[in-house]
Design a protein around this nucleic acid. Structure first.
Length: 1120
RNA sequence: AGUCUCGUAGCUCAGUUGGUUAGAGUACUACACUGAUAAUGUAGGGGUCCCCGGUUCAAAUCCGGGCGGGACUACCA
């Protein structure tokens, strides 16, 4: 439908997909997005950072959620006069891309370097990562997300990597970068560390049976006060601490034992089941029953059968874990001692429980992350008696060269080992260690134990936790500043910032940057082989100059440095050999860095800062606003913060919103596997981006999880968009018919009728509300307020009650006032809703201002409406509220008595308490009367007792004053009779007799309600009461017929498809009663139905019967 | 296991500094209305405010302890 000159565009049916594609075209044609930035040139800027998505997967509906939030905030700020640049970006590195490439090529990591060169592999990654870029771009367009996709930052580009290098170098210079050890999942079979992601791949955890052992650690004599105490209990005999393990191969590397401070332990005298030697053991009280049967307590030791069963025992002492921390013990398997740190001491571990084992945990710091942490905290050293192949080193003489896990041996090797052991069955290291312990009286129990253990997803062999070299960022050094600066960030919701993020910061560990992969940003550190000299490269220029030094020194040959072949990825960087100051060759540390560093570096790297764009960077750091899913708390939100704090002593963002997940309608996580994932394209095509966006924003707070239900979307469409569209369509039809001109002078507000001033007052209240909601980053509140206004106030009250003013009014000024008021309201709504529903709002706006196709006007180029407090009349709003309430009450009475609204009634009685109440109702009485079709309102101020009243205490007021007497007072008030109430109303006070005091009750401390009026039809609610006179006089009855007839004629006109302005004539077949009844209303009927005449005739061509209440007539209407 | 979050009608959600008949929309049922009609009005049914304790004259609301859903992080001697 084309725009016709100076007309409001008419559109009966709301078709979101047409509107949206039309608006998209206009935006593209007129570059509306670019304009929205250009027109704010020189204004304050509002800085937004785009968290880069990865284009190697299809976008899902949750992306629509996150991007709606980003978009609406930016659009809002833009309306508020800020210049809001939105540079897009792509996250392009990382493991998922590598895995995808491997899947595509049918290779594994093992094949890299053999079947495929690193260069070819990375080339594949580079292509794969942008596989779905077009799909993403399409979604971006269709959902109405305004972001600059023409100049996005791309994390694999040299300029981006160069910026990252410069950041790393700054960290290096500040001594924030170091090489250290970290216990990581490690696959000896594959010879590589694994990420937690790889451990979480399905099938990695398998149930396996291992040999477990409870080892006896002999307590060593020491100055520890508990030693002598316990020693006394055993009469000077040795005593042992029991600790359980499912990995006996770690026992030679044991350096500590961990207890729980609050756990209760026992010292027990019993017998070792293998050696049958009496022993004194320490274990957790709760776990005693696992090892010793209660019935054998205090049994005679001499009755023991030397069979390992029915071990007699005797409890010698009980104490808390905290009592024995610091006790020393003898090393269990003394192959080697740690070079650094203390060892063989009892320490406290917060992770120790009494669920399993003995309540005492054997600590081998090299083979457990918890172990390492607790050991470091206690200054305990470590032993790593296993090499990277998973084999014992030579120093472990008994098992030298043997793999700690049976699974690492091939069948052949196992056979050989069996021969060597000289047994008919191969015994694992674990098993032989246990045997050794048993014979040495160092094992109290051993059994097969089934547990789930992680396996390498590539080799299917068990993994080990192993200390690996890694590069770390010393974030712990900046922890306090990070915590401090975090407090200045406005988090939405607050709890994520204080709670999840705050907690995370409080428990920081150094950031492990290293990743042993191929497709990612290389760590720019070159080291000599002995590790004594190293250099951190911070720019391409520096690399080149170091390179020429190396070439001059002869450690490095020729290399192609031309722009087109320079690629800061592997393998190029690995081919570069630099020279140290002492002339030694330096090779690059082979790691890549964590991709999270890539994204955390975007404030700088997106501008290739510090190499370029210093001005732009300075004015766009830190960000005013960022938003992502709550799952980014420890991801992007953290890395942005960490880098900014460490390098710039600044926050990276001032406001941050973390949105929840989008779940399916049953609250389950969406996944392709379950088939419950919602395709955003289908949803948007069918319901429109606006409805989708509106639904997501209005349904629940962004940070709550959203249960995505299509029915909710349909509801939004029906309740909001259809209603709004109908309202506009109504306006357009009559405005065009009446030739309403936008150029007409505005009628001053104070000259407009009550209802206009009311809706304008509501509108300005709404502006205030929406503005403060958006300012507070509470879009849900804004959406709900707009929705309520459109539905309840504008459509269901203002338009409904004003309808007649638009199509028949004698007063042209009144008509113009109505058009202007509705036009203003609709235009303002289009602006208020535009951040959330960018398409329809723009369509509506353009229609309202009669924009032509070639006109670039857009709601997104306007200024946000200003709430004018002088237009807000709370008093009037309250009055209208009363009108709505009273109308509703009267309608419910009509309903109860089955009197249709078309039947006029004479009178309604409204009891009031004072003249103020009367005034309020009087101000809106005409509206009420016409709405409910009643002739007059009569106010009664009752003192006669006809009106029966009920009094209810105001608990809030009285409770504060009376406290404990409240209950009694409440009862007393409820018992007040009519006389008492009357007294209270007229005298404003009443003496309340309570058991021990008198209380002078004030009028405002109670609520008085009318309950009933003798002989009337009464309804009441919220303090208001109405009484209806339902007597029908002859005249009222006749008017009822007339109204009924008008209704029938209107319906018939519609059925006949007449235009709203067509004139008709009405013929009714002679009918005495009807003629008499309708006589007085002929003019009224003709007027209402645009009839030239109403004739009673003796003949009618087409016989059609109509029911007028209890009459039946035959009537024909014809277009003239 | 830790951290965070949610739990109110069949469903989606409100519920102010604690204040007494716990609300709205939706869905359902019935009856109306109909020159805005995929709308609207009125009425009806529908509640263990997750549970248990505590504080208080008074708890959906505050405190303690649980339970359940979800997310993230770490891990299992």
């Amino acid at each position: 439908m084309a725009y016709s000159e100076k007309n409001f565009r008419e559109s009966k049916q709301l078709s979101p997909s047409h509107i949206e594609s039309e608006i998209l075209q206009i935006w593209n044609q007129h570059q509306t997005f670019e304009q929205s930035i250009a027109i704010r040139e020189g204004k304050n800027n509002f800085v937004f950072y785009e968290g880069p998505p990865s284009a190697n997967g299809m976008p899902g509906i949750h992306h629509v959620m996150a991007r709606t939030i980003k978009d609406l905030v930016c659009r809002y700020k833009s309306l508020k006069g800020f210049q809001v640049e939105r540079k897009g970006g792509w996250d392009t590195h990382g493991l998922p891309i590598e895995l995808q490439v491997e899947k595509k090529l049918g290779i594994t990591k093992k094949d890299i370097g053999s079947k495929i060169s690193i260069a070819e592999y990375n080339k594949e990654c580079r292509e794969e990562v942008m596989k779905f870029k077009n799909v993403w771009d399409d979604l971006t367009q269709k959902m109405g997300y305004w972001v600059d996709l023409n100049n996005p930052y791309v994390t694999f580009e040299n300029y981006y990597i160069e910026s990252i290098w410069s950041l790393l170098k700054k960290l290096y210079q500040k001594d924030y970068l170091y090489k250290g050890l970290r216990i990581q999942p490690f696959s000896p079979a594959a010879g590589t560390g694994l990420s937690s992601h790889e451990l979480n791949m399905p099938g990695c955890y398998k149930n396996v049976k291992d040999v477990s052992a409870v080892a006896q650690f002999k307590v060593k004599e020491s100055e520890h006060p508990q030693f002598s105490l316990l020693s006394e209990k055993t009469n000077g005999e040795d005593f042992y601490i029991l600790a359980w393990t499912t990995t006996p191969w770690t026992l030679p590397s044991n350096t500590a034992l961990a207890i729980g401070n609050k756990i209760n332990y026992l010292l027990v005298k019993t017998i070792n089941p293998y050696t049958h030697i009496p022993v004194n053991i320490i274990l957790a009280k709760d776990l005693l029953g696992k090892y010793l049967k209660a019935e054998n307590e205090n049994k005679d030791f001499s009755l023991y059968q030397n069979d390992g069963k029915n071990l007699p025992y005797q409890i010698l002492s009980e104490f808390r874990g905290s009592d024995i921390t610091g006790l020393l013990y003898e090393q269990l398997l003394p192959y080697a001692q740690p070079e650094e740190g203390d060892a063989f001491r009892v320490i406290a571990g917060d992770f120790v429980t009494t669920e399993d084992g003995t309540g005492i945990v054997h600590i081998a710091p090299s083979f457990g992350a918890d172990d390492m942490r607790v050991a470091q905290e206690n200054g305990i050293g470590s032993l790593t008696l296993v090499d990277r192949q998973g084999k014992f080193i030579d120093i472990v003489t008994d098992f030298a060269g043997e793999p700690v896990k049976e699974a690492y041996l091939s069948d052949e090797e196992k056979e050989q080992a069996k021969q060597k052991q000289g047994r008919d069955k191969y015994l694992s290291v674990d098993e032989r260690i246990v045997i050794k312990l048993k014979t040495e009286n160092k094992c109290f129990k051993s059994e097969k134990y089934e547990h789930s253990y992680p396996h390498c997803w590539r080799t299917d062999k068990p993994i080990l936790y192993y200390p690996l070299d890694s590069w770390f960022i010393r974030v712990t050094a900046a922890k306090e500043r990070m915590v401090e600066l975090n407090k200045t960030i406005n988090w939405k919701p607050k709890s994520t910032g204080e709670g999840r993020f705050g907690q995370w910061l409080e428990n920081l560990v150094d950031w492990n940057l290293s990743r042993s992969r191929y497709w990612g940003t290389p760590l720019p550190i070159w080291r000599t082989e002995d590790g004594e000299e190293e250099i951190c490269i911070g720019s391409i220029a520096e690399l080149k100059s170091e390179l020429s030094k190396a070439q001059a020194a002869g450690v490095m040959g020729d290399i192609d440095l031309s722009e087109k072949n320079l690629d800061l990825h592997k393998p190029f960087v690995d081919d570069v050999i630099l020279v140290s100051s002492k002339g030694k060759a330096m090779r690059r540390e082979s790691d890549l860095i964590d991709v999270w560093f890539d994204s955390g570096a975007m404030p700088y790297a997106q501008w290739h800062y510090p190499f370029e764009n210093e001005e732009i960077f300075k004015k766009s750091f830190p960000a005013d606003f960022i938003a992502e899913g709550v799952d980014q708390t420890r991801g992007w939100f953290y890395t942005l913060h960490a880098i900014a704090v460490m390098l710039y002593d600044s926050v990276a963002y001032k406001n941050v919103m973390s949105n929840g997940l989008v779940l399916d309608k049953n609250g389950n996580k969406m996944s392709k596997r379950l088939g419950n994932a919602v395709d955003p394209f289908i949803t948007i095509n069918k319901y429109g981006a606006d409805a989708t966006r509106w639904y997501m924003i209005s349904n629940s707070q962004p940070w709550d999880n959203l249960k995505f239900d299509i029915e909710g979307l349909e509801e939004v469409q029906r309740k909001l968009f259809s209603t709004l569209h109908n309202t506009y369509a109504f306006f357009a039809i009559y405005a065009n018919l009446d030739q309403f001109k936008l150029s007409q002078d505005q009628i001053p507000i104070h000259q407009r009728p009550e209802i206009d001033r009311w809706i304008i007052s509501c509108l300005h209240s709404l502006i205030q509300e929406v503005e403060s909601a958006f300012d507070d980053y509470e879009p849900t509140k804004a959406a709900r307020a707009i929705q309520e206004f459109v539905n309840d106030q504008l459509s269901n009250w203002y338009v409904r009650l004003s309808r007649r003013r638009f199509w028949k009014t004698e007063d042209p000024q009144d008509k113009i006032a109505a058009y202007q008021t509705l036009h203003t309201a609709l235009t303002t709504i289009s602006q208020l809703m535009s951040p959330i529903a960018p398409f329809y709002s723009d369509w509506l706006y353009r229609s309202l201002i009669q924009a032509q196709d070639n006109n670039s006007a857009s709601v997104h180029l306007t200024d946000f409406p200003i709430a004018k407090t002088e237009r807000i009349d709370k008093d009037l709003e309250a009055k209208m509220n009363i009108a709505q309430q009273l109308s509703s009450l009267i309608l419910s009475l009509r309903k109860r008595e089955n009197i249709k609204v078309r039947q006029p009634l004479a009178k309604v009685l409204i009891p009031i308490i004072d003249s103020q109440q009367e005034e309020m109702v009087a101000a809106v009485q005409n509206l009420i009367l016409s709405e409910v079709n009643i002739k007059t309102i009569e106010f009664v101020r009752d003192t006669t007792g006809i009106v029966s009243k009920k009094v209810k205490p105001n608990f809030k007021l009285l409770g504060k004053k009376l406290g404990a007497k409240m209950k009694e007072a409440s009862n007393a008030i409820l018992e007040m009779n009519a006389e008492d109430i009357n007294h209270l109303e007229t005298q404003k006070t009443f003496d309340l007799q309570l058991s021990d005091i008198n209380y002078t009750l004030l009028l405002e401390e109670v609520e008085i309600q009318t309950e009933d009026i003798a002989g009337w039809l009464v309804a009441s609610d919220k303090g208001w009461t109405v009484a209806l006179d339902i007597t029908l006089t002859e005249e009222l009855k006749n008017e009822g017929y007339a109204r009924e007839l008008v209704n029938k004629i209107q319906t018939q006109r519609k059925e006949n498809d007449y235009q709203v302005s067509d004139r008709i004539e009405i013929k009714i077949l002679n009918h005495n009663i009807a003629e008499k009844a309708l006589k007085a209303f002929t003019d009224y009927i003709c007027n209402e139905t645009l009839a030239d005449n109403l004739l009673f005739v003796s003949h009618i061509d087409e016989l059609k019967t109509y029911e007028l209440n209890d009459l039946e007539i035959i009537m024909e209407i014809k277009k003239k």
